[in-house]
Design a binder for these strands. Sequence first.
DNA 1: GACAAAATTAAACAATCGTTTAATTTAAAC
DNA 2: GTTTAAATTAAACGATTGTTTAATTTTGTC
Lengths: 204, 204
Amino acid sequence: MDYNSKQIEILNVSLKLFAEKGFDGTSIRDIAKAADINVAMVSYYFGSKEKLLEAIVLYRVSGFRMILENLQFEEITPIEKIKKFVALYVTKLFQNKDFYQIIHFEIVNQKRACDFSAFSEIKKKNLLLLENIIAEGQKAGVFKANCNSLLIPALVIGTFSQIHNNKKFYIEMMNLKDEVEFEKYMLNDFKEEITNVVLGMLIK
Amino acid sequence: MDYNSKQIEILNVSLKLFAEKGFDGTSIRDIAKAADINVAMVSYYFGSKEKLLEAIVLYRVSGFRMILENLQFEEITPIEKIKKFVALYVTKLFQNKDFYQIIHFEIVNQKRACDFSAFSEIKKKNLLLLENIIAEGQKAGVFKANCNSLLIPALVIGTFSQIHNNKKFYIEMMNLKDEVEFEKYMLNDFKEEITNVVLGMLIK
DNA sequence: GACAAAATTAAACAATCGTTTAATTTAAAC
DNA sequence: GTTTAAATTAAACGATTGTTTAATTTTGTC
């Protein structure tokens, strides 16, 4: 799939709108207005609104080229690898939060006949990588024998989403002055805190 | 607010449908069909579709009578209190997962002019209770001095939601045989695992 | 500059949306 | 049994939905 600049504009605009207002809450006319195009262009380029959603998913997933994969071959301790793993994960969540917002709603909301297997495959690969790091740490005698690796990505993604979705609540509770400070918190303090939680689950 | 049995039926049916297909993805005719009523009855009883959503929120929140509050006065150690706190939290999440599904989407999706302050107030009260337990544990010398109490409910709710929203993925990854086994996992093993994570964050 | 393909447009399409109407049935009160 | 209010209904309302049409403009090619 190679899209021209106008198609990419449509993909980005509708990604943002779908994340903000939901797929059903966003009309093609909303998209057309925001992307400054005619209503017919979505059907013309993508076939239908639902196919546009599929195009968004494929477009973003294909951009998910595993930054994580290189971790395997770095010559650092398992603990350092876990730190990097979580840090990269949080950064990626932050950069793609709109995408995650959409996809997680659409996965629950099984209404759409949308294929998310490409997304599942990436999750499986990430999980396998994590298991390898943990096994490495167990072999080295620094990690506990019994730890549920499946819980870790769920914990990182879930906690991140939970806080980000309730942004206003947490800005108030943490006495932050604006959204900029909140985003700084997520990329710095939160990243560190959640890393420590994960390390606490693993280290003996 | 006291609703008759027919109104409660509408509230329950639309709660389920909104959780499954989203607010915008559910039509009043869908609700009417599922609740076996005429389409006009929703407007007749609740005024509008949006007011029905508000009624659902108020109806469920009012039922959220703090089981947690009694924890304060129990004569058990802070560690036991945290264990009970998390266990009650997970149970409540499980029982109200449809409601959480709706409210979390609607909080992000600021489209609706819906008042969720009643929900925020409950969250604040729960947070205060948790802070008291933690302070108690710190005074007793069993909990760390620096721990972000705000992170704990986010972690419990977030991880729970993340796993529950990706039910199919986790059933496959955990080699569970059906949804019944999955629900058992959530109420037993998961509850224990997430409790240990929280305790790991707190205990010295 | 003529031609063909692609891009873009405004208009119309039928379907569905939430809501209202006005008529009818049911229930309760006396 | 009559009266009155509440509950329920089918039908219609105008607005909006996703999509298609057919006409027009733009673009690229020779």
